[in-house]
């Protein structure tokens, strides 16, 4: 038992975790003592932070932190923290995310104990995803979820679960900070681990793009603009070659891009152009695609030369369209 050398009485990691758990049990009982328990949780979360980040400018003690982590796993405190997150006060919610993310980064040799802990309890990940439906914990859950997604095992669990398709609603929520948080988590899920997400998109092409089409046609300007930008990144990523080939052989997708090219918003035109160019630059364009381009050849050439954005790319495309054989 290390001597309390820090002046103020310093509880051992085991005591801290035990007190935290007792307070959580109190909250779950939900009786009149619950409010007091919320304060207790706040206090003990501060103590946990004290161990992890060190007191008042001193360095944390690595064996104390290791002990704390071990106690946290064995006492199964993490699931309780996530389950009761919405009952905590404003600062405690942030502390939970801080502690959770810190534990996720802990490595012992090549092993990440917290990642293994979560792999064994996938329902915790689903709870974090569901967190987006409750405004006052949405952003906290988002931050923990994105930390999880940095690890491919956990990202796979979230991606391959049917709740993944909920993101298509979460990114359209009315409150901008929740919707944009959901969008950045959604983006991490399908771009962080290239091969894994390419396989996912390939295997679930129809389901994914039926939902994705709605984002591209959303009334919300930010959703349209962001999903269009993300589509460009997806199609131009070499890992997604099959997905790209399939996408640019569908005439409906080309029509959608040409409509978006005509939008009054400069930014949306800009993003649409970067998708549209993939259709035109495709050396072996399927018949239906070539027909549409030929039918609109003059309009497209005129449109592309009139606006002076990204000229060199345009010059190339204009030449492509003009030289298309009937």
């Amino acid at each position: 038992m290390p001597l309390p050398i820090f002046g103020k009485s310093h509880k051992s990691p085991a005591d801290i975790v035990k007190n935290l758990k007792d307070a959580l049990i109190q909250i779950e009982k939900g009786d009149k003592k619950a409010d007091k328990a919320v304060e207790e949780v706040g206090k003990w979360l501060q103590a946990v932070k004290g161990v992890i980040y060190g007191q008042e400018g001193q360095e944390p003690h690595s064996e104390q932190v290791a002990q704390l982590a071990q106690e946290t796993y064995s006492a199964n405190v993490l699931p309780m923290l996530i389950k009761n997150l919405s009952k905590f006060d404003f600062e405690s919610k942030k502390d939970v995310a801080l502690i959770f993310n810190n534990l996720l980064r802990r490595q012992i040799g090549t092993r990440s104990p917290t990642v293994e802990y979560l792999c064994a309890r996938p329902e915790m990940l689903q709870q974090l995803v569901k967190g987006y439906e409750c405004a006052d914990i949405a952003v906290t859950c988002g931050s923990m979820l994105r930390e999880c997604i940095r690890h491919d095992h956990l990202a796979k669990l979230v991606l391959h679960h049917e709740s993944f398709y909920q993101f298509f609603e979460y990114v359209e929520m009315s409150s901008f900070d929740v919707a944009s948080d959901a969008f950045s988590t959604f983006k991490d899920l399908i771009t962080k681990h290239k091969t894994m997400s390419a396989e996912f998109l390939d295997a679930n092409y129809d389901a994914f793009f039926v939902h994705y089409q709605k984002l591209l046609n959303s009334e919300n300007y930010v959703t349209r603009r962001q999903s269009l930008k993300l589509l460009g990144e997806l199609l131009l990523d070499r890992h997604n070659f099959n997905v790209m080939t399939r996408y640019i052989s569908n005439p409906d997708n080309l029509k959608l891009m040409m409509n978006l090219l005509k939008e009054k918003s400069k930014s949306i035109q800009f993003e649409a152009f970067h998708v549209f160019k993939v259709f035109v630059a495709n050396p072996n364009k399927p018949r239906p695609i070539a027909d549409i381009l030929l039918r609109n050849r003059e309009k497209l050439v005129e449109f592309l030369t009139e606006d002076e954005q990204f000229n060199d790319e345009k010059a190339y495309l204009v030449k492509q369209i003009q030289e298309m054989k009937v």
Partner: peptide
């Protein structure tokens, strides 16, 4: 105005996220 404002939407949401904390 998101059209005129050069800051990208990602930067804006990052900073609004920080404010909401």
């Amino acid at each position: 105005n998101l059209e005129k404002c050069q800051t990208s939407v990602d930067e804006l949401s990052h900073e609004i996220h920080a404010m909401s904390l």
